[in-house]
Design a protein around this nucleic acid. Structure first.
Lengths: 187, 187
DNA sequence: CTGAACTTTCAGAATCTTCTGAACGCTCAG
DNA sequence: CTGAGCGTTCAGAAGATTCTGAAAGTTCAG
């Protein structure tokens, strides 16, 4: 594939989203790859992704594997094709909730456990005003952690349940985008 | 200072929070240091932090500087003391809003700009159904980015200091909907 | 079964991040 | 002014992450 202007635009977007994804603690390659698939629309074979994104075969393979593990990219079978094709999940909320959930759960358990252990140690050995004050601050920290966890879970849960509403929101947003971005599409 | 059980407990908590902070894209040392100060309550000098957290003088210095830049640790002046002391900000909400705000702002601007550039390129060169479809998907991506930004801003703007009540995420959802609708009507 | 087409794996390379520790600089007491 | 006490800086070390590229593995048509 020769370098087209369209590819240039896709790369621009892919790199931008790549930076966002990196900012949130994942590999840039994950965001770039998902975005390229998303913008392209049709499923693409691994080799073409590598070409478009300038990644080695190995990097493409591991990146696609990871994206599938997060459930944001799928393999698709195309009859008559030897190669495997990949397409992006297009449901933003499905992606977000899945990823955030997976991502927080493990850590939350570990943190709760360790803070609890610290609390136990302090309770066993502490005495005096300073110690009591320390215990109280630890308690506040634990409450905050629990609260944050609950906020995240509630957020995800409400979105999942309230999915229809969000769909409307998206549709509305699209209209907004179309209206704001010049009248090119319909007129 | 000999290694006490209290110090052990503090380290346990500091490391736990350090992991959380690292998980959210900062250096572990930032979380460890803030937590140590927070739990200790009274301000501590740099050297003692280094001792308690097993960090070199250099690491302590750069870490404290960064924490102050985020506004979550303060220098305090103690009369008659040659050394500078440091204390933790204890208002969780203040910290969160400050950090999240700073952290997202730059990236948001850059991403908007780059996605907009990609859009311009596609508009100039695109033709045919495939191109139109690509433009629409890019539009959805931009819209989602805007929405995510709005969610974060609404969250910060809501200033819910009352962490005890965290059930009402639907309210947040309604705010977001209203915000998006408002932007739409203006456009 | 065999070879071609394609994918996955992984050791080593390249790169990026963070830390150490010593030199430097600042401030204050005397 | 001088030296002690502290904090900061930064070059190089150490460590962590991610990528490359080639070998090994898998699948399928013939």
């Amino acid at each position: 594939m020769e370098p087209t202007t369209e590819n240039e635009a896709e790369l621009l977007a892919a790199d931008a989203i790549g930076d966002v994804i990196e900012h949130w603690g994942f590999r840039k390659a994950l965001g770039r790859t998902w975005t390229m698939l998303y913008l392209h629309g049709d499923a693409l074979p691994a080799a073409e992704l590598g070409e478009r994104l300038q990644m080695s075969a190995g990097a493409v393979s591991t990146t696609l594997t990871e994206l599938q593990r997060w459930g944001v990219v799928r393999k698709v079978w195309i009859p008559g094709e030897r190669r495997e094709f990949f397409e992006a999940e297009t449901d933003f909320w499905k992606m977000i909730s899945k990823v955030v959930h997976e991502r927080e759960r493990f850590l939350a358990v570990s943190v709760r456990e360790r803070l609890g252990r610290a609390q136990a140690v302090l309770k066993r050995t502490g005495s005096g005003a300073a110690s009591r004050a320390r215990l109280e601050r630890l308690g506040r920290l634990m409450n905050f952690a629990t609260m944050a966890e609950t906020v995240i879970e509630s957020f995800l849960a409400s979105r999942r349940v309230d999915f229809g509403e969000f769909g409307n929101l998206l549709a509305l947003g699209r209209q907004v985008t179309a209206a704001a971005a010049g009248k090119g599409r319909k007129g």
